[in-house]
């Protein structure tokens, strides 16, 4: 026996199981990554892995919008988000990002919780959530704690989640109704494509035509999700024109090189990251670039 499988139906039950088996359990939240990883793992006879499938926990499947806060249960699938009226209303770029995940099969199985905890630098849902300054609630038998999404990651595929913890929900304050957003992704094909680059842009423009708020979060070019402060600073307080948008976009390329260093792909990725950011910003500003 190298593998065991359990499918709790309540959060309480799941927390008990994880508490008891914290040294040899793994949460399954859709299995779109876990199953792939398991194929390359060597089974360990002495310590059979316990897979804890939490997709049957209905308490974790919800999208709420109350008091200006959107709360999304961890077991909501990409497909659910892509079809959610609330998300389309308050953060359509998040719906776009989830619609760009893999294929219909993967979107139907894969969950937002799984996508976050798997912590792939190329995860499609993370740039918009980062731009939205989302926060996470983690629960365990020991209690619960909230962390900012950007503090959750330690590196590629590494997070601060403890073995007995479950990601319960991701939540964020709905952007001002006047704000606009865009998500663009560059893959190697139209579907079943892992992002080579992606950009989420969330921008608000005040009555005078100046950018009052900006959040720029690229994907697949940084070890973990982050907003690019220099790019945002280049936008805020300015009336958007070619020069302003260009210089903000340039910052994304610079940041990528600062954080990730120069690699074989940099010669291509840097200018293309700038171009993608530029288009995302213009798209968020309501200028159709495609």
């Amino acid at each position: 026996m190298t593998l065991r499988f359990i499918r709790p139906e309540t959060v309480r039950e799941a927390m008990e199981v994880l508490h008891e088996h914290k040294d040899n359990s793994k949460i399954v939240a859709g299995a779109t990554d876990v199953m792939v990883q398991r194929r390359s793992e060597k089974p360990v006879e002495e310590k059979p892995l316990l897979l804890v499938d939490i997709t049957g926990i209905s308490e974790l499947s919800y999208v709420n919008f109350q008091n200006g806060i959107v709360r999304i249960g961890a077991m909501i699938t990409h497909r659910d988000i892509a079809r959610s009226a609330v998300i389309h209303d308050v953060a359509p770029f998040f719906a776009d990002a989830c619609l760009s995940v893999g294929s219909p099969q993967i979107r139907t199985r894969g969950t937002i919780g799984g996508n976050i905890v798997n912590a792939s630098p190329a995860a499609d849902s993370l740039p918009p959530l980062t731009a939205l300054s989302a926060r996470l609630r983690l629960i365990s038998r020991r209690g619960s704690r909230d962390v900012a999404l950007c503090d959750f990651f330690k590196g590629p595929y590494k997070t601060i989640i403890e073995p007995d913890e479950i990601l319960k929900e991701v939540y964020f304050r709905a952007p001002e109704p006047s704000s606009r957003c865009a998500f663009l992704k560059l893959g190697r094909r139209e579907s079943l494509a892992i992002a080579r680059l992606s950009v989420a842009a969330l921008i608000d423009v005040d009555d005078s035509g100046k950018i009052s708020k900006a959040a720029i979060a690229p994907g697949a070019c940084l070890p973990m999700p982050a907003r690019i402060a220099p790019a945002e600073e280049a936008l805020v307080g300015k009336i958007p024109d070619e020069e302003v948008v260009n210089s903000a976009s340039q910052e994304v390329g610079e940041e990528m090189v600062r954080v990730s260093g120069v690699r074989w792909s940099t010669e291509y990725k840097k200018p293309v990251a700038c171009a993608l950011t530029k288009r995302a910003i213009w798209k968020a500003l309501g200028v159709d670039v495609d």
């Binding site: 294929s103 190697r188 094909r189 139209e190 579907s191 079943l192 892992i194």
Partner: peptide
């Protein structure tokens, strides 16, 4: 495998 070997899909 097919995650890195890029075959066209129906959308391509």
């Amino acid at each position: 495998n097919f995650s890195t070997y890029i075959l066209p899909t129906s959308l391509d």
